[in-house]
Design a binder for these strands. Sequence first.
DNA 1: TGACGAGGTTAACGCTGTTAAGTATAATGG
DNA 2: CCATTATACTTAACAGCGTTAACCTCGTCA
Lengths: 222, 222
Amino acid sequence: MDRQRQDHDRKRSTTRPPSPPLSADAQQHETRRAILNAAVQLFMKQGYRDFSLRQVARATGYTPTTVYLYFKDKDDLLFHVAMEGFKHFCRELEEAYASGATPIERLVAIGRAYVRFGLNNPLHYRLMFMERDEFLQREPPPGFVAPVQAFELLVQAVRECVEGGYFRPGDPWAYALAVWSTVHGLVSLALTNPSLDREQIATIEEVAYEMMQRGLVVQTPP
Amino acid sequence: MDRQRQDHDRKRSTTRPPSPPLSADAQQHETRRAILNAAVQLFMKQGYRDFSLRQVARATGYTPTTVYLYFKDKDDLLFHVAMEGFKHFCRELEEAYASGATPIERLVAIGRAYVRFGLNNPLHYRLMFMERDEFLQREPPPGFVAPVQAFELLVQAVRECVEGGYFRPGDPWAYALAVWSTVHGLVSLALTNPSLDREQIATIEEVAYEMMQRGLVVQTPP
DNA sequence: TGACGAGGTTAACGCTGTTAAGTATAATGG
DNA sequence: CCATTATACTTAACAGCGTTAACCTCGTCA
């Protein structure tokens, strides 16, 4: 009759190619990387709520249990997906910082890069800053930079503005948090309200920058 | 031997009391209300990720299927939980608005009420504005106010500031969005980073208000 | 030859959301 | 008064999920 219920995570035809010979732990690293890549890809297609470990396993051609040989559990896998996002995110912010000639320019570039990242990577942004923002605090796995480093870059940029006399005197840390609040709020607003088009977002972005500028910058009437 | 697997959502001793006689649809409304209350209570204890329809059913003494007689599915139930939050939220914002004598006072009161709500109801705030912010756009069920109404209150307060000459001329809508960005960012920051204590949050809050004030208010040197 | 470990699988458990079908009780109509 | 019908709820199941214990199946090395 109908036998007992059974899982059927059989391998599909969509299987991994036969891998060329490799050293032991290079091989290990390889498959780990393959699983993580599949996870990132799946996440970017499905988003947070429909992300499933079993689907990642199917996509790689492994059984679900194999995933546990390379990641502690689903949450650990998802954490690594988020860390991939943070890596990307930090790089863009650093590039922005490096692109500016003056402290103010550097700070504004960081702000714009932040917003751009959010708008261009909505699913990752949601994961990193809205759905699983606790990941921000988690100790980064070896080989990854701590997300908090991006924030320190922001504090650094703000500090330069204060010390250079561009900003009114005050605690750079508190200023940086206020700046972060504003740009994060802006991105959240854009993601939350998809009916807003890029132009409207740009308008609000300019209002926000002007607000920050008038609010923080020393007013030197010519 | 061991029979087929079977669910066992048997009624527990923690059952609903025998209800006094009521009219047909009043009774219906009653149980619906009981389920929703249990859902809210469970949500406030467990948060978004561990919220389960079956647990709600168990808490009420009903079977899971019964829940489907009163709510379309789990998401609908969760949506109503969020709407309860919005009801509360809108009320507090309206009280804040009413409490101010001048346009500026009203606006500041709204901002402070917003932040207070977020800090006092973190799980609900996360649900409403971070985890399931799409609920904001959803058509409210009969008997509930649209969440967007709270935002219109904010726009109204900002408009009064502009029209009263307190703010520099500009689009009240864009200003309101910028203000919302700032307070939402602030609350997000506080919830994301639980290591920040109330005092530190208060500091950043003041910085943010000062920034908004200098950024938006007409500077009239005495 | 035999022990061993690395890399992977099988089969299950318990949980979840969800649905089709059934049941008991109350209300209603001829 | 009995038959019907609707109401309120349950039973039993399905499929999917995360997770685990136990088991293979090799290649390596003593």
